[in-house]
Amino acid sequence: MLNTAPSKTGVLSPEKRTQLRKRWLTAMLMAAPFILFYLLFLIYPTLRVIQLSFTDADLAGNGVWVGLTNYTKLFTEPTFWTALLNTLYFILLTVVPNTLVGLGLALLVMRLKRLRNLAMAAFFLPNVLPVSVVTSVWNWVLDSNFGLVNYLTGSTVTWFQDPVWAMPAVAFVTIWWTVGFNVLLFIAGLQNIPPELYEAAALDGASGFRLFRSITWPSLWPVTSLILLLQLIAQFKIFDQIYLLTTGGPFDKTLVLLLYAYREGFQQQHGGYSSAIGVVLMVIILVVSALQAKLLNRGGR
């Protein structure tokens, strides 16, 4: 790396200054294309959504300042609270279970020798499917009349339309779809545990569950916390599976924040109100991300 960052430009020779300017120009040329897209399509909309949330804009972006109206309406609207609670319920059903299932499967896969890659591929494969393929496959497997699950169990539950089962069913599909990601991370974590640790503990007479509790679990904790937080952030943004499997139904039992924002913004043309929902979602995710950054920093040390 070229060093000597100029602190006092005044004492530099002309050649040095040209050189510095040239270097600066090169750096800018390299960084600019990405930074341009980044500012235009990520940062600008993020600032604009805050501004829009104080207007009654439509989808074309025309609207006038309405102050806090959208927010007062939002916080007194029962549908918003339904959507928030449903989102939290979905998080409850996915984040910890998905992590635990991932850990369990990773521990099982680690035991295999020749078939390890095959088993890992089996658990990870759903992960590479487009969401609409996942939802149409499960819509078919869980079809209430002709689906395989109901045929085998004799059940008549309509999984994705039942007020009680819809959310757990979506959560189940989500776990099936995404757990492979967690399995991979856990396997990486498990492989990083030095075998000497186990050997030492075994010499001390530890075995069975005690080995897991005293060695595996503590050593895995950085990975586990990372997975938990990645899940948490991802699941706050849940939209695709819900839209495709239940469209928020039955009777708003699976309506989540992002779907609510979509409905209001794109289907009802309430751009300002929808932006207010977006701002709330963003604040929540920023808080969770800040938490993640803090935890990751600690884990890194």
């Binding site: 079809d143 009349n145 002709f146 008549t156």
Partner: peptide
């Protein structure tokens, strides 16, 4: 029929 989605209704 209870709890039947559109395509399932036709299929039934």
């Amino acid at each position: 029929t209870k709890n039947t989605a559109y395509p399932a209704g036709v299929a039934l």
